[in-house]
Write a protein that binds this DNA or RNA. Structure first.
Lengths: 212, 212, 212, 212
DNA sequence: CATGAATGAGCCTTCATTCAT
DNA sequence: TATGAATGAAGGCTCATTCAT
């Protein structure tokens, strides 16, 4: 019986996840509007109608894809926020490695692309992404840098700006991978870029004393 | 025709340009698929039919928007490439200021967003953007940095990586403006960010001797 | 099975009847096309699949609803047809009271509405309804009136027309109840209307002699 | 040029009327849900898309059909309401003839059928039909009858009931025409039925004195 | 018998594109 | 050139019907 391909499968519990996963691929590849329900369904291995057993509309699927990509990263952000208040270089190196790993190993890059692309059409999604993920992470980094400045570890300068200086190459290389690599551009080794970047930037932003 | 020509008479020769300009706004706001020909025509102040006197298809308009945004910047890139081989800090500061000015003062950010979003659907556009703009600029910067390394001005490290480290915050802040500012995020002062970034990074990447 | 059988155990034998009853309500409320199998099943207290154990298609259920509403009334019609050939006023009064009672106490009004609404899509249903119910009743009345005319009880005039004159207010008030009362119209007291109608009409159609 | 069938016609002003007329036929024949936009468009001689240049949704078309059928009759109702306060028999005979003419000569029967069928799904349509047409007409008749009763022309009895007694055969024969005639039932001669009905009923409802 | 997850044909609606004016 | 009414293909969504359990 196992060998015969049953026409129906009856796996209510698994379906939503499978559909969201398939949708992530299709949306990341084509964008929201150009993605066809048929494609999503086929890639999820179900019929078009089955998708509507689990989601109300195409927009719902989109929202599920994006918000679902937020949640697992919230933990990481919280860990970052709660990070020990020790010397800032270790913190930054640790965070950079962790985030680089996430970015390299998950489809979060594709989701980021979708958020950027559809922010105009789905403001609430941009808001969720910002409020729950980006602003949190940026805020945690900013606070840590301000504390380090107070301790004399980091040179004067806008702390929030230091924070984006730190993460910008990550976003850049991810979008590079999504945008230009498929048309033949030379890819970047994301962890390597981050290593060089963090060392260079630390070198530039730390005070003499902290650089020891 | 005569002296009594109405002051605000529409210039026929300007039509394509007006349409492209209108299309840029609509595409940047909604994305390619969600942009309606009707909106573009209305915003350009012409009828829907008139658009088809100048462009074959919606894709054509899109291509025109993106490629048109490339050309004026090619000059800048060439200037960059031909830049004098003097001390690298001045070159970098000069380039950064120029690029920051362009980014802050033109809709190129919206175009970048479109390129990222539609790279999957219009690979040749991603290719044009990469080959004629991004790769050129990155290549010029890379060469200049390698030359500076050869002169002992810049520390060892991957020159192409140094180049993206330099420009990444620019892309980041532009996308921030396009994506999160409309939903209430605090904006960045792009030139200020670039100033701090360039100084910090130069501080970190220059050798002792060059830092004088 | 045994004495301990649950008190409210569902009678399998009743299922078709329960489904038809539920379907009658839903069809009467929404019409054939707008009625959803899901609604019918839910209102009958069974699963959607169970409906298909008893009926082949949605059309089948519809046919069952309408034809089932015909049968119990056929007896009444036959009784009418076989009615004693005595003075017509008594016959008419008796028939009117009986029919008014049926109309007021059964969902036959909703069925009539369905027949009217779907006659175009289900001609055979209109035909059944006409041939087995309406034409029979009308024919019986017509014959009785013609007999009364022969006996000099009823004035000259088209007998079939007299017959519909008699029943028309019944249909009118039923449809009023189905159509306008739900949107706030003042309802009619159907038996009262029929009493006044029958007396007025008899007054107008009987000859001097019969009016004694 | 006239001989050649042009692909497009450009008759903006005529379209809505043509579409509503076509829709009336299709809706009356199939009902709202079973009517296909394609059918309506084809019968109106336009493409499916063209329909959407003039109406937002299928429901809109339906509403337009029904409300459009109301308006021309409102005038007649008003005339009825303003009718001279002379002897009631003349008034009733006049109104009956007029209404019978309208009913026989316009598609109002089909519209009435639609209103009855879809009252559950479109309550506001039932409300419009009732408030602007049926209740007005019934109210005017009721008032006239009450006045006649006050003058001693009409026997005691509920005036509103007398009013529906009067019009019921009209509705009955119209629905008969829409429902049973297509499946082979013998049609009624509507004006003839009304003549016999009015005379019989007047005979029954007038007082001795008024019958002179 | 009974369930309800799954299917897929069908239809409303949108919108890029065409063309008579 | 310019217009905008008209077209028709495409796709989101619904729901009667089927079938593995």
């Amino acid at each position: 019986m196992d060998a015969g391909e049953p026409k129906f499968r009856r796996r209510k519990a698994d379906r939503p996840g499978e559909i969201v996963e398939a949708a992530l691929q299709v949306f990341a590849e084509k964008g929201f509007a150009a993605a066809k329900l048929d494609d999503i369904a086929r890639r999820a291995g179900v019929s078009k109608g089955a998708v509507y057993l689990y989601f109300e509309t195409k927009e719902d699927i989109f929202r599920a894809v994006v918000t679902q990509a937020v949640s697992p990263n919230i933990a990481a952000v919280k860990a970052m926020a709660a990070a020990h208040p020790g010397p800032i270089p270790d913190l930054i190196r640790g965070v950079a490695q962790m985030v680089a790993g996430v970015v390299a190993g998950t489809p979060i890059g594709g989701v980021a692309k979708m958020v950027i692309a559809e922010a105009g059409n789905f403001p609430e999604i941009a808001r969720v992404w910002h409020d729950e993920l980006v602003a949190q992470a940026l805020g945690a980094m900013t606070l840590a840098i301000e504390a380090a400045q107070a301790r004399g570890e980091v040179k004067p300068g806008d702390a929030r700006t230091y924070a984006i200086q730190l993460v910008a190459p990550l976003l850049m290389t991810v979008l590079w991978r999504e945008t230009f690599v498929p048309v033949g551009a030379r890819p970047f080794d994301i962890p390597a870029v981050m290593t060089q970047h963090v060392e260079t930037l630390l070198n530039g932003m730390l005070t003499q004393g902290a650089r020891a």
